[in-house]
Nucleic acid binder design. Structure first.
Lengths: 202, 202
DNA sequence: TACTTTATTGTCCCATGGGTCAATAATTGA
DNA sequence: TCAATTATTGACCCATGGGACAATAAAGTA
């Protein structure tokens, strides 16, 4: 275990600053100067650690994704059954510390660049593949094989749609509301053996 | 019926050009110069008809939304029952001429600005209220009152989520796939009296 | 201690793009 | 026909922001 390198520390600080500025200002408004200010440094330092703006925000997206992934993994490690694994995935995606309008705004800004930034598209693809594989590993034990695909797509679309609503909403959509919606879906879409337990816990 | 005013024609041309550039370039890349070029005019003309860039893209969003609304209204006018109305809303939202990655890219670019552009937020709110009201007017005849809210939210979230996937996807998600997913949801979530007919037609 | 590498800053450059404006062309309307 | 309005252009201005760079400070290394 060696000491933390200063470059790693700085990079992390800058990635986070970048993500925070993105929440407030969007991609166009997120200038290197603002990111530097947010991190309490000068613009030069940003370009010392990242080759250019794209690379900075690519790493910011990577880190935000990693945080979400870790939240899901932590819950998955406690899950003891396919149903619990499914719940772990879903609840991880709606943890209150993530499920905030400002966080969604940053994600939206990043997603809007995906079509023109191959690096962001790759990250997006990884996120999506992981979600799918996580879901399938639970669903195959709960549903006839030919239905798994449909339900996996339904769950991911619902999660994305609820997140989008969080970012665009005027009314307050809470983490609890979102989870209630997900349980509503599962309770109707999974075989009744699983359905009741999902409904029960809220 | 008076002759078409040239200013109305120009405005429409420019709104459409703006939307097309948005599809390719995103918000930051959609410069007034590119919009003008897309419309076959000069930059000056854009600012002659629109006070500034925000106003231009606000009108572009309005027009795109109107097109979608009209598609839904046209289908609603043919619907003879609550179930048909529900199908009209859903199918209108996945018409192939709209449900294209490039169109989704433009929407994404606009949605990403919503948090910082009150005008866009207002349009977004109108869209959302209309969707909700359309859905509720059908659902109240199909479900116990206390479930309508949940299903309306489920449908909107699914639609948004499927659209988002269209824009971010690597794999090809078609209009048919999306509709199949929506029918899968309805067939499990609506009372079985309605469920079978939804499943039957694909 | 002296030398090298890394961290950090502030300055400078330059392309870009939004917006203004004056000049000109086309239309309209009396 | 002629004046007034509207359409259209291109030149110009200027703030902004990404990125390069040289200079300096700090840290590590021998």
């Amino acid at each position: 275990m060696r000491l933390a390198k200063i470059s790693d520390i700085r990079k992390r600080e800058l990635r986070r600053a970048a993500f925070e500025v993105l929440q407030r200002e969007g991609m166009a408004g997120a200038t290197l100067e603002k990111v530097a200010a947010q991190a309490g440094a000068s613009k030069g330092i940003v370009l010392h650690y990242f080759a250019n703006k794209q690379e900075l925000f690519e790493h910011a997206m990577r880190e935000a994704n990693a945080a979400l992934r870790d939240a899901v993994v932590a819950r998955l490690n406690l899950a003891r059954s396919p149903l619990e694994r499914l719940e772990a995935i879903i609840e991880g995606n709606f943890e209150e510390r993530f499920f905030q309008p400002s966080v969604c705004h940053a994600w939206l800004a990043l997603c809007a660049e995906v079509p023109r930034e191959p690096q962001l598209a790759r990250i997006q693809k990884v996120i999506h593949m992981r979600m799918r594989s996580n879901l399938m590993s639970a669903l195959v034990h709960m549903l006839p094989e030919e239905e798994c695909e449909a339900v996996a797509l339904g769950i991911t679309a619902l999660i994305d749609g609820l997140w989008l609503r969080l970012g665009l909403q005027t009314e307050r959509l809470t983490s609890k509301d979102a989870l209630r919606q997900m349980r509503d879906y599962l309770s109707h879409r999974l075989p009744s053996a699983f359905a009741q337990s999902s409904v029960a816990d809220l």
